[in-house]
Design a protein around this nucleic acid. Sequence first.
DNA 1: ATAGTTGGTTACTAATAGAAACTAGATGAC
DNA 2: GTCATCTAGTTTCTATTAGTAACCAACTAT
Lengths: 122, 122
Amino acid sequence: MSYDVYDSECPARAVLDHVGDKWALLVLHRLSQGSTRFNALRRDIPGLSQKVMSQVLKRLERDGLINRQAFPTVPVTVEYSLTGLGECLTANVGPLLRWAEANMEQIKAAQSAYDARVVEAA
Amino acid sequence: MSYDVYDSECPARAVLDHVGDKWALLVLHRLSQGSTRFNALRRDIPGLSQKVMSQVLKRLERDGLINRQAFPTVPVTVEYSLTGLGECLTANVGPLLRWAEANMEQIKAAQSAYDARVVEAA
DNA sequence: ATAGTTGGTTACTAATAGAAACTAGATGAC
DNA sequence: GTCATCTAGTTTCTATTAGTAACCAACTAT
């Protein structure tokens, strides 16, 4: 059976909803650098609130992209890591992030030019 | 000057907000297959409303990823196409969509297993 | 006349994102 | 003793966004 992301009934659309998410992309990329605990992840990704992070982690775990492992320490520590499937995905996410970093100057220039055009038209 | 997507003040974060968007990914991928008009794009991507599409296209145009060209036909037709920058980006988006399509079976299995575990725990 | 085409915008509502406070159970500082 | 801090979250509330449906102008074909 094959899937087509353009089909709105396709379950791949649901996955794209998770993968095509700024926080999920950042979390996956961070985990590709090694297993990380909840709060460490939060410190590494400023701006991501505890609530949203907990939601993102649950979705990614449900999709089989990350593992959640709780250790009975005091206080309990929880470690998140990529599954094989997740690793396979992050191989495709890395280039996207590197592209964003590498092409920022061009994008900022395009935005300024666009804004100037809009102001002129108004 | 270099950028770091983990920095919440980094403008690359703003771009990631646009790129890390399910509709933007689909639109960019569709345009990588050739220039397309507004309504044709809408027909090709079922589930994407006119309002959201118009917003997505404006953001992508502002970021310098797509061109908007209006022809003075009757009624006016508008053609959207990738810029050089956009083409460069979609080279990284394609693999992501293909990954989603290729790994759906595994993801669905993971979701079922997760849901079964959650029900059992409840 | 009426329906259909083009590319949008507007108004309204439902869902989500985000900020801030709170939980519990144990440890360390004063 | 008690106050602050660590852990990993949850809860509550509000602000933003996503989505649905209707509407717009200008024109064509029936």
